[in-house]
Design a protein around this nucleic acid. Structure first.
Lengths: 242, 242
DNA sequence: TGGGCTATTTGACCCGAATCAAAGCGGGTC
DNA sequence: GACCCGCTTTGATTCGGGTCAAATAGCCCA
């Protein structure tokens, strides 16, 4: 964790937001440079996670929100009966931990799907600063709302009773999110397992595997394990709508 | 709409929050009486809706949030392909309209399931006041977070591949929400149609109808159209977990 | 390079939920 | 009361996706 290394120049740790590629998706969006610096100073540290590491556990005390700087994570909740549900896959620029704002504890767990890094934002600080920076308050709400919109998309996906529609919608939305990050919209590298994806979509993994095959036969994608190439974006979209 | 009637005493319209049964669930929760009054004054009006009336449409400009004072509403989104997904059923004390905070327009539509009334909170006012009332800011975030938690429950419900689990979980959570409002937890009056409920659960209406029958045969509930009596709460819960 | 492990694919079979169809029930109006 | 119309229930049938089982492909590490 570079931020904890005393040999590192503090100025190098700070002033990172201004140079971060994600600033237009993240909290600093729309702020002037003085306010961006205030956000920057609020970032407690920038932490690295290995694949499989847990960022926070359901039930652990809530202290901070996290912005993903690189990599990807999944959030999941376990019901009283022990059933696990994956709630979302999260990409750079997204904030995690909102669901804990209600109480003092996290409601779900967050786990890295690959080597990832996050910026930690102590919530007490964020509350204090956003009271005096109206633009920050607004951008914060915008991110909360974006998160809700993503959840609604997830529900709409699970509501489809054709399994192939769910997968097509997933790939389509993944592609859009990749594009938002400035990456190729047609070449996806999925970081989650078939089992994770199946759980997310409300299916079993064998079905997901078969559906990848079907979509490939139909000529809309090309799959090799976790590498997916989108060949026919419109076709994919229309399968999602059927 | 009583609030628009000049013959009504303004003081009667205001100072309602302090006397409202829902104040502990709503924005005023945890505020001192001076701050409750400020919230009260922010309420633009208290509007009545008939069953089927629309509170806001997807795409319409976002100006205000709404707290449900009585009755119930559903929110629904229509995808580009024209598929409709019901996102939630909303009871008194809940705030609606959060999903619009991201942009300038509502992302989904809200429709009354029965005669209902809501308090309208102009968002500009809310933003202004919450900057100076930290407790309000915190309670607001708590409500946002509760909404997200509800969405996560919804996903966990749709993730079950046993249809009867979904219905059982729905009834169980409905019962808890009724209890939170101080109503009987065992006697539910569903305000949504079988079609709405089926869509919400990701099933078809015939299946929902049959499952009500099955749960009744199993002795865990008693159903007569939209009246549901819970006979065996634990049994219902365990069916939800299976 | 080889061994062992996990992730993924593929196959055969079956069941539960979707679909299509029709009847029953209630609430409303004339 | 008689009729109509929408909501709900019930029935018969079909089919998609779940389940169980096995093979294959990668990947990590010795």
């Amino acid at each position: 964790m570079p931020a904890n290394n005393p040999a590192i120049d503090l100025d190098q740790v700070r002033r990172q937001c201004a140079r971060c590629d994600l600033r237009e998706l993240c909290l600093p969006a729309g702020l002037d440079s003085a306010d961006v610096d205030r956000v920057d100073q609020m970032v407690a540290d920038r932490t690295s996670l290995a694949s499989g590491d847990t960022l926070y556990h359901a039930g652990s005390p809530f202290r901070a929100l996290y912005v993903i700087k690189s990599g990807s994570l999944k959030t999941q909740a376990v019901s009283e009966g022990g059933e696990l549900q994956i709630l979302g896959f999260h990409l750079p620029g997204e904030i995690m931990g909102f669901d804990a704002l209600a109480g003092e504890r996290h409601q779900c767990s967050a786990e890295a799907l690959e080597a990832s890094s996050v910026c930690r934002l102590p919530y007490a600080e964020l509350e204090r600063i956003s009271a005096s920076v109206p633009g920050l308050q607004r951008q914060f709400m915008r991110l909360v709302s974006r998160e809700m919109g993503d959840d609604h998309d997830h529900m709409a996906m699970m509501g489809r009773n054709q399994a192939i529609s769910r997968l097509a919608l997933f790939l389509h939305s993944m592609s859009k999110r990749q594009a938002r990050l400035g990456r190729s919209a047609d070449q996806l590298t999925l970081t989650m397992s078939r089992a994770d994806l199946a759980n997310y979509l409300g299916l079993v993994l064998e079905t997901v595997s078969r559906l990848f095959g079907r979509l490939q036969e139909m000529g809309v994608i090309e799959v090799r394990r976790r590498e997916v190439k989108i060949l026919d974006r419109e076709g994919l979209k229309s399968i999602g709508e059927c």
